[in-house]
């Protein structure tokens, strides 16, 4: 144990501590500030007041916006899971010329579609189709943005399930839709759960699209409402922001815990090799 080694160790752990603090302090602030009567930008010992929650409850748009977020994210997730499952199954089982090129092109484009780059044309499109200020329209557009990546991920799950299950069902006379319902969906259920969680988390955190396409404040999701939480003086309303931020993050954390416990994000097959 040379002094040089000891110094090296001390330096290393200090660096890690600083890095950890960098990520923990904002989280600490998020759990303490809502319970503090007059929160600042500092992390302080809270005085455990419920006044801030009272204020959020009284805010006319705060709680409804969480409901809006739920509608948007669950709606999108349902559409994405159903459509991606059917598309991925077809792409996995039918030989198409240029199939892989198509998949890669879709994956590449997907990051552009709901991204900033396509902001203007998407807005135009929504106006032309009369989908502006409509939650359904937003769900459709978000679904379009998530589908390519979802298809890409699900196709991998589909590819890894042996074909003989389906062939066996076919010989017994099952129709393609029956095969998907009875055999394929139960086999790729962990994959479907992964896609659903991923879609919900994606939509829950999406700010740009709802901000662009929903102007009616009653339809806006939590991510957009957060942006409007200012005091009369134009200052960020830290009481509201911290409390609402906590309420906004808790459902996603709970969902992750639930799904991870139920499915473990593992592949389990029960396949005779």
């Amino acid at each position: 144990m040379t002094p040089r080694f000891v110094l090296g160790r001390i330096g290393f752990y200090t660096l890690i501590a600083v890095l950890l603090a960098f990520f923990t302090i904002p989280l600490l602030w998020l759990v303490t500030a809502p319970f503090t009567s007059d929160p600042t930008y500092e992390v302080r010992m809270p005085d455990f007041t419920w006044e801030n929650f009272q204020a959020v409850l009284e805010h006319p748009y705060a709680l409804p916006s969480l409901w809006n977020s739920l509608v948007l994210s669950v709606g999108t997730a349902l559409l994405v899971v159903v459509m991606a499952a059917l598309a991925a199954y077809a792409l996995s089982r039918v030989r198409l010329p240029g199939r892989d090129a198509l998949l890669y092109a879709l994956l590449l484009l997907s990051s552009i579609i709901t991204g900033t780059a396509a902001m203007v044309p998407l807005f135009q499109l929504a106006v032309e189709l009369n989908l502006i200020d409509s939650q359904l329209g937003l769900i459709l557009i978000l679904t379009g943005g998530l589908l390519p990546a979802a298809i890409f991920m699900l196709k991998d799950f589909m590819d890894s399930t042996p074909k003989s299950y389906e062939e066996s069902a076919r010989v017994f006379g099952a129709s393609p839709l029956q095969i998907v319902r009875h055999v394929v969906v139960p086999l790729v259920r962990p994959g479907l759960a992964t896609i659903a969680v991923w879609s919900i988390a994606n939509v829950w955190g999406n700010f740009l699209m709802p901000y662009l396409l929903l102007s009616d404040v009653e339809k806006q999701p939590a991510a957009v409402i957060t942006y409007t939480l200012y005091t009369e003086g134009g200052q960020a309303n830290l009481r509201m922001l911290s409390t609402f931020g906590l309420l906004y993050s808790v459902p996603v954390v709970l969902m992750y815990l639930f799904v991870s416990k139920k499915y473990g994000f593992r592949f389990h097959g029960g396949i005779k090799r």
Partner: peptide, 30 residues
């Protein structure tokens, strides 16, 4: 499905998410 034949596959292709009863009864379910 319309040929009225039944096949046993090399890997047996038993559905892993169904118990033995449901597996045996699957052709009847169809």
């Amino acid at each position: 499905g319309g040929r009225d034949v039944a096949m046993v596959f090399q890997d047996y292709a038993l559905f892993p998410h169904m118990d033995v009863t449901d597996n045996i009864a699957y052709p009847l379910r169809i």
